[in-house]
Design a protein around this nucleic acid. Structure first.
Lengths: 226, 226
DNA sequence: GGTTCATTCAAACGGTCATTTGTTTGAGAG
DNA sequence: CTCTCAAACAAATGACCGTTTGAATGAACC
């Protein structure tokens, strides 16, 4: 009956159940995957009734969507806020590109940086956005429409030496490196055996922005043929 | 009634069944995901009996492992062959790094380039290696042990200006960009609306190698502080 | 006190799942 | 020809799935 997010009535019991479902689903989805996590696992771990999921979210798909929206919406709002800020008062000289890349990758890498436990789940889920198969992600991906429209345009202005094709390729590579950094953190910890610390958020952002800007800025491959 | 069935009572029935299961599983795993694809879907689509999966592969996990191993093993063999080749006769001057990157990302991007239909499935699956949750991938990931040992060492030799930490970060970013290029091809097609063609394998390799080499070669961030 | 309405709950529904079992088949070996 | 054994088969098992239902709860309002 009340699948929407605004169920703020007088009682506090309702919102508590809703939040516990969201928190638990977020953790289990990250650990086990969307398809492999059953509603029974979620409601048992959360200590709520099975039917509460359908009451609050309508269906399992509705729950998935709610879990993602809770974190993606603020990230994309922050990205656009920074983009607006940097476009209004651009940095002098060459640091403009660094600002744009930072605005794109910073907010997602800094997500939940104060809560390491929740951060692990959220980042794992976000890193899996393009990997989770099926149509379940379509309603999540449309939340990035404005990002996909405004950021490439800004990059194009900052990198006038690139053709549209080259720019789109490099933005694609940039997204890949960022998503992998967001989602496959435990892999890096395990492989680097010490030196690289994905929990050091600012160092991660610094390394990633530096790498991406160098790749983005490099000469046009078409120009090489001249 | 039962003595007839649809048994292709000819010759070499065994290997045919096994191959049909592998081909069909590969396609459905790519389309629907590992957990969400049932053995019944696979065997029905393949036109074989359900029990044949357990006979040939022992379990669903065994089938998953077999599907991956069939393609990953040749890719990694080719990667190491190229690495051996380039280490034996290194290219003159600055093109050495390009050779190394090409040896790492070329074989996976060129996978099944002659069969677009199968290529889509295989690349989608490989792009999902680090995203698929659970322990199912552990037995697949260990196939990369030699890659993870030899390539960073080779990169370190080609990029002596980088500290070990910086090198590992950049290799991590490189893997992310490569996996995203491998797995999220339909996304690029859809977003770029024309200019970028992920089916043009050689152009993809060229763009990716160029981008990655620029990122890898860029100055050490530690050096900037001096 | 009685009514309303959001919320929670236990219990079931029909389906599908992975796996096991026991039998039948067919081709190559002696 | 017979023997053997890998291979394919149908049927059944028990468990788990997402979803629905209808009743119980309990605070808020008249």
């Amino acid at each position: 009956m009340a699948h929407d997010g605004t169920a703020m009535t007088g009682t506090k019991v309702g919102t508590d159940t809703r939040a516990r479902i969201l928190d638990t689903a977020e953790r289990l989805f990250a650990e086990t995957g969307l398809a492999a996590t059953s509603l029974r696992q979620i409601t048992t771990a959360a200590g709520v009734n099975l039917a509460a999921v359908h009451y609050h979210f309508g269906s399992k798909d509705g729950l998935v969507q709610a879990v993602y929206e809770r974190h993606i919406a603020p990230v994309n709002r922050e990205r656009l806020r920074l983009l607006d800020l940097y476009e209004a008062t651009p940095s002098p000289g060459a640091a403009q590109l660094e600002q744009l890349v930072e605005a794109l990758v910073g907010p997602v890498l800094r997500l939940k940086k104060d809560d390491p436990v929740a951060a692990r789940s959220v980042r794992c889920l976000i890193g899996r956005i393009y990997c989770e198969p099926g149509d379940q992600m379509k309603s999540v991906l449309c939340q990035f429409d404005e990002i996909r429209e405004r950021f490439p345009a800004a990059f194009s202005r900052a990198l006038p030496h690139l053709s549209r094709t080259e720019l789109l390729w490099r933005v694609h590579f940039m997204i890949g490196a960022t998503l992998h950094t967001t989602g496959a953190r435990q892999l890096l910890e395990q492989v680097s055996e010490g030196p690289c610390d994905p929990n050091n958020t600012e160092e991660t952002v610094r390394q990633l922005v530096h790498f991406l800007c160098a790749g983005l800025r490099s000469a046009s491959t078409a120009a090489e043929e001249v």
